[in-house]
């Protein structure tokens, strides 16, 4: 039995952070959380690296887009899949995130935790297969 997949959750809203963390833990993931972009980026660059990063866009200190750009610019973090969890359904935001290399883009209000866990699972195991 391998070690549980590590999830880095970067989310400034504490209720969302709590609900998401609880749901993923229940489903057997190891979850690390960050309250803002700066902390998110710092944790993302810390060893051991996360298997997947869940990233909010609208956050204090550093917007999610900048975090994403920084992660993709660094070879050691570039290959970690990043799922964007935003509440903006603006097409521009979505396109920008996908162009920067995000693995997916979800509007939190329209996403159930169950579906989120399925996506995370799919991405982690797809990644782990390599």
């Amino acid at each position: 039995m391998s070690a549980p997949p590590r999830v880095l959750l970067v989310e400034d809203d504490k209720f969302l952070r709590r609900a998401c963390e609880a749901s993923l833990r229940q489903r057997g993931f190891e979850v690390t959380t960050a309250n803002d972009g700066e902390e998110g980026l710092r944790l993302a660059r810390s060893v051991p690296y996360a298997d997947i990063i869940l990233l909010d866009l609208l956050m204090p200190k550093m917007p999610g887009v900048d975090v994403l750009r920084a992660l993709k610019a660094h070879p050691e973090t570039a290959s970690i899949p990043v799922l964007i969890l935003s509440n903006s359904s603006r097409e521009d935001d979505k396109q920008q995130a996908l162009q920067l290399g995000a693995a997916g883009y979800y509007v939190k209000a329209n996403l159930s935790l169950r579906e989120l866990a399925l996506q995370v699972d799919r991405l982690v195991h797809g990644n782990a297969a390599h």
Partner: peptide, 17 residues
């Protein structure tokens, strides 16, 4: 609408839990 969505997401996820 955007501001509504954040608490709405919280409600959805908490209720789902």
């Amino acid at each position: 609408s955007h501001q509504l969505r954040t608490p709405l997401s919280g409600m959805n996820w908490m209720l789902e839990l």
